[in-house]
Design a protein around this nucleic acid. Structure first.
Lengths: 185, 185
DNA sequence: GATTTTATGTCAGCCATGTTGACTTATTTA
DNA sequence: TAAATAAGTCAACATGGCTGACATAAAATC
């Protein structure tokens, strides 16, 4: 019940086409994250840890504030996983050089190793899908996803840049969603 | 670990391309779900409710078992949200005709109304991204996502089918992931 | 130099949504 | 009649969001 068809839209904007897109996103994302979850479980970590490790891996020397901005969670929430990762030797913190209040984050060898394993899981999955779909499809895939992303974060992506200098933080796991922001951030 | 580049891969399979795909998925999915979350909050519902409402809406008369199979959560988890939705008049249960142990689920008018609002949020978002990207891009988008989905669920999608009879259950929100299955299912 | 702001962290407790385990109640099947 | 199945319930636990209230060190400002 429901879709009231009859919009003078191009075919690809028909109601059921959009529905299908919604569903593809759901299942696609679900399976995309499933792999890494297994690896994480072996370390007794969750997706929250994955995200931290991933971003710190991509932005060595980033500050806690930087990380909070990307993750969009409260510092209390971050603290839970971050301090655990530090305690267990996956991440190190060193005081900022110019601003000594900061704690610059980076992966230890151990942390980098885990990061590699986690990302490898997902990379392999994406590579398989890319290969099966072909280069043109990949272009379209990126274009559409980019359109789903809010303006603000969209700039993180310079699609088509053949060799970025290496500053395009991203993230793997999943996020609750509801920010709010009173505790911190 | 990690593809030491230098693989004779086509450009679109390069390491940083894959990384970017991973990141696009993360941000894209995050923002894709954000909209509906707001609507849900107004009803004091979460994504779990969304999923139930969505699937029941797509499969009127489905059994609880059917729903559990799709959601891949335990019946105890489902029970929490389902009974709430029934209690508050969004979903009705009626005994199965042939097998009276079953409780066939369907949306009430109130439930259908909410379903419409929720899906509308996401549909609009997807439509915007589709429109901006163009029909060809949409094809590619679907192709790649399909490749990310596990074989089993992939059959739910008959991409390219211009007018399915209406049996392609899907889901919007997000899922924890870890099944396990002792409690039920 | 004293005051205020900023970066980071911590304690405590709440909420949503997963999980496991143990059972109960109908109803269908064997 | 006995066993299996569909659905549901109670209880307890884990993860990972959130809020509020503070604490500490260092930087910035007056």
């Amino acid at each position: 019940m429901s879709d009231l068809k009859s919009t003078p839209n191009p075919l690809f904007l028909r109601d059921d086409e959009l529905r299908q897109g919604i569903e593809l996103l759901f299942f696609g994302y679900r399976d995309f994250t499933a792999r890494a979850d297994q690896t994480l479980a072996a370390y007794d970590f969750g997706r929250a840890h994955h995200r931290v490790i991933y971003f710190v891996g991509r932005n060595p020397g980033m500050t806690v504030s930087d990380l909070l901005d990307i993750l969009k969670i409260t510092k209390q929430s971050l603290s839970r996983v971050l301090s655990q990762l530090v305690r267990e030797g996956f991440i190190v913190q060193r005081p900022g050089t110019t601003d000594r209040r900061q704690r610059l984050l980076s992966l230890t060898d151990k942390g980098a190793e885990l990061e590699r394993r986690l990302t490898e899981d997902q990379r392999a999955l994406v590579a398989r899908a890319y290969k099966a779909a072909g280069a043109d499809a990949v272009e379209g895939f990126k274009k559409v996803l980019l359109g789903l992303i809010n303006e603000e974060d969209r700039v993180r992506f310079r699609t088509q840049n053949p060799a970025g200098p290496g500053s395009t933080p991203t993230m793997p796991g999943n996020t609750g969603g509801n920010s709010g922001g009173t505790g911190s951030r």
